[in-house]
């Protein structure tokens, strides 16, 4: 039972922190830092869960999510979105785009872990 998470984040330090946390929880963590080819990377990695930053070089997280949900096999893929832009409009946009969970940076580690656990549990139950 290998759980795989794909972390798309361009800030190396943040990526490293999340990788540390999730690895200890037993997740297999893959990381990517570009927006442009994110869809292909997701399709290639076939993760159980995606953690997606909003401000990415090349293509924004919102656009990636929107395009992702267009794909048949990606409709129900749990996506946890993280953003450093503290505007309520972003949450709304993310929900419209089909986000599974939306979190604002800076987050507490416990929050991230809980969210990942919940999302995974929901996904495996259904």
């Amino acid at each position: 039972m290998s759980r795989k998470v794909l972390l798309i984040e361009d800030e190396p330090n943040i990526a490293e922190a999340i990788r540390f946390l999730l690895t200890r929880e037993g997740w297999q963590v893959e990381t990517h830092s570009e927006g442009t080819d994110a869809i292909e990377v997701i399709q290639g990695a076939q993760p159980d869960l995606v953690i997606l930053d909003v401000m990415l070089p090349g293509k924004s997280g919102m656009d990636i999510l929107r395009d992702l949900r267009e794909l048949d096999d990606m409709r129900s893929l749990p996506v946890l979105m993280l953003t450093a832009r503290g505007q309520s409009r972003d949450r709304e946009m993310a929900e419209n785009a089909g986000v599974s969970r939306f979190m604002t940076k800076p987050f507490s580690n416990a929050e991230v872990l809980t969210a990942v656990r919940d999302l995974h549990a929901q996904a495996t139950q259904s």
Partner: peptide
């Protein structure tokens, strides 16, 4: 919005790693 992003990004790293050092 930009300022917010620029402030939150380093703070996220600081918080995450300080929690890791505290809790792990």
């Amino acid at each position: 919005s930009q300022v917010s992003h620029e402030l939150r990004t380093p703070m996220t790293s600081i918080r995450a790693f300080s929690e890791i050092m505290r809790d792990t």
